[in-house]
Nucleic acid binder design. Sequence first.
DNA 1: CGCATTCACTTAACATGTTAAGTATCTCCC
DNA 2: GGGAGATACTTAACATGTTAAGTGAATGCG
Lengths: 172, 172
Amino acid sequence: MAKRSADPSNGSAPAARQVPMRDFSRSLPMSLLRAREAVMRQFRPSLRQHGLTEQQWRILRALAAIEAVEVTELARTAFLLGPSLSRILRDLEARHLIERKTAKADQRRSMVSISEKGVKLMASVAPSSEAIYAEITRRYGARKLAELQEMLGELEQSLAGLGAGDEAIAEE
Amino acid sequence: MAKRSADPSNGSAPAARQVPMRDFSRSLPMSLLRAREAVMRQFRPSLRQHGLTEQQWRILRALAAIEAVEVTELARTAFLLGPSLSRILRDLEARHLIERKTAKADQRRSMVSISEKGVKLMASVAPSSEAIYAEITRRYGARKLAELQEMLGELEQSLAGLGAGDEAIAEE
DNA sequence: CGCATTCACTTAACATGTTAAGTATCTCCC
DNA sequence: GGGAGATACTTAACATGTTAAGTGAATGCG
């Protein structure tokens, strides 16, 4: 349908087809990207209705289960880089959805926690969020979903030691 | 190690644990996000050495296999939103890695193609990129990788009809 | 023909991703 | 106890993600 015929009538066709590679659209990164987007597309409308972005929601969820965390650990939990987290925390604090106070023992650290208002917001979002997750599980199959997550985890594991490129491994 | 004990000495512990939900870190979106990041972390150093971002590389790869495409179709192929693509094309054109000319039949459309310089750049990146992909395949297992991609594709499929939230489905 | 709609982008504006640099605090060792 | 280095963030700067609005060119229809 969307197939494009060669159309040799093009007067000055530039270079192409010179670098043979795997079919791009079937690469692992693209598969992961598309799959994740297909999933997140389901959640975004509901979050948006409540004035939350995906990342803000991640932060609130990470905070909901604990009393307080340091920013660094929160970054690890919510899988955000420090600078992103720093900005988002500033905004969430301005909206009074979280609270921050510097640790007594170490003035460098600041402990972050969810506020009452944040808890209430979460409570208003959670039902719809759970419903969407349930629908995804229903469509894809609970067993298959668990298997997929298992395989994703193993993929992570198998790449764990491969480093960020310039860090020479120290233990051998 | 990183386990945090309750520490009841906290004078004014704010709200927490109020909204029971699935363990956040095991959610499907997070699994997909972490897996993709684990994969892309392998590729980024090599791309960066050649002055390319992940998205610029996606665009060049999408262009390498064809003579020319419209921007809209390129957006679909490279899985980028129009505005992102528009900016990146502007930059790639300024670097003479791609070429653009407006279609004869329809002045609105512009046909994008990779340039000679772009082809050469791709040729210099491709070997390392293929090597990395091969190493990932080796570590994870070729069969398992194919299976994973199959499952990711099925996940996409099973969510295909679920729409962007506000579009009423017409066929039932 | 004329004009409202649609279409194919591009711009704009704001949030986040990403790397590098800055700042304040803490630790350790002399 | 004092200064070098490490730590825990925060800022800065630039690229991309994301939605909405803008622009110019086709299309359709009265």
